[in-house]
């Protein structure tokens, strides 16, 4: 996992390298800002930051095409930014405001965008896995060649419904890519303490699902593996498993003191394997960009994030009438005597 040289596997253009840099940086700065707003009491409840794992979703998004679906767990802010959702709408949802993607009714863990084919934002560990296979089922039923990226963590990979889904996805050859984001800790339980077999990419073997382990801190390696998986799925060969070996720098949620690992372990990952530094080095060493160019990008991203935070603060709380909307698609009250 050297952070010094570009990956050999992928032929990436300067423009694409800059795009990766920009997108990963946006996620990191956005999450840092979310952390601040949480500290100020503007964001409530649970808030799970994606800092450290940016290369996974940015690399895989580079392999998608129009109509492909994605969904993930509650650690979902990065996925939304990477698939092109508006940072303002995401941040305003975190603050529970009218301008949020779910009108403030979902919060950090429950956000969706039909337009971006982003199907959540799921608060129950592992629940998004069969749902992702179901989206793939719908695409197969409709006869298109779209694929669904179903993200889940190392913790979720021990859930029973994941294996029920592996069985049916393989049986029915569903075009779904199971992306296991292995950040080594299921909340406070390390992979070794919670999984009988730590090689998560082999978890599909019993169902005939091919899998591979990928350096999830290397955006180029992620993209290369993603392309292979996507080709497999689009060709009608059924599901594919990508284990993205990654790391989260922050606690499980904002309220996690992270006593289960050492400060040195986190510092070592940050110093030696940081995904953004990796691309930064490639850009500078390959003379694709100067320090000044990158500074300009940093500044630009900071402005986007600040705008999103301003919007999220200024957007009003939802109207009290919103309490009673969106319960039923046809707005039928639950009981004729109520309301």
């Amino acid at each position: 996992m050297a952070a010094k040289k570009p990956s050999k596997k992928s032929n990436v253009s300067k423009d694409e390298l800059l795009k990766f840099y920009r997108e990963m940086l946006l996620i990191r700065r956005f999450e840092e800002k979310a952390g601040q707003l949480y500290g100020m009491g503007l964001i409530g409840g649970f808030c799970h930051l994606y800092i450290g794992q940016e290369a996974v979703v940015v690399g895989l998004e580079a392999t998608t095409k129009e109509g492909d679906n994605r969904l993930t767990s509650y650690r979902d802010h990065g996925h939304m930014l990477a698939c092109g959702m508006d940072p303002k709408g995401v941040m305003a949802e975190l603050t529970g405001r009218e301008g949020g993607y779910s009108k403030g009714k979902g919060g950090s863990m429950h956000m969706f965008s039909k337009e971006a084919h982003f199907y959540g934002g799921h608060g129950i560990v592992g629940a998004q896995v069969p749902i992702g296979a179901g989206l793939a089922f719908a695409d197969k039923y409709k006869g298109n060649d779209n694929v669904t990226f179903t993200y889940f963590g190392d913790g979720a990979s021990n859930q029973g419904q994941v294996y029920e889904t592996f069985n049916m996805a393989s049986l029915w050859k569903l075009p779904v890519i199971f992306v296991i984001e292995n950040n080594h800790y299921a909340m406070g339980t390390s992979l070794e303490r919670g999984s009988s077999t730590p090689e998560l990419y082999t978890r599909g073997q019993a169902f005939g699902i091919p899998g591979e382990s990928v350096d999830g801190m290397d955006v180029l390696a992620v993209k290369a593996a993603g392309e292979k998986a996507v080709a497999h799925c689009r060709a009608g060969n059924g599901p594919y498993i990508l284990e993205m070996v990654t790391y989260r720098y922050r606690g499980h949620s904002m309220s996690d003191p992270a006593k289960y690992r050492s400060r040195e372990e986190v510092q070592k990952m940050r110093a030696e394997h940081d995904a953004i530094d990796h691309v930064r080095q490639i850009l500078l060493q390959g003379k694709y960009a100067s320090e000044d160019d990158l500074k300009a990008i940093d500044k630009e991203i900071k402005a986007v994030v600040n705008d999103s935070a301003d919007f999220a603060r200024e957007s009003p709380e939802p109207d009290p009438s919103e309490l009673w909307t969106d319960i039923y698609a046809d707005a039928q009250p639950s009981d004729k005597t109520e309301k």
Partner: peptide, 26 residues
């Protein structure tokens, strides 16, 4: 068999798949 589908005995899994299929427009 495209529209009448036998599932394995895995209620949790096939219910989730059906919910996902409904999000996908079925």
């Amino acid at each position: 068999e495209k529209r009448v589908i036998d599932t394995p005995i895995t209620e949790h899994g096939f219910t989730g798949i059906a919910v996902g299929a409904s999000f996908g427009g079925l």
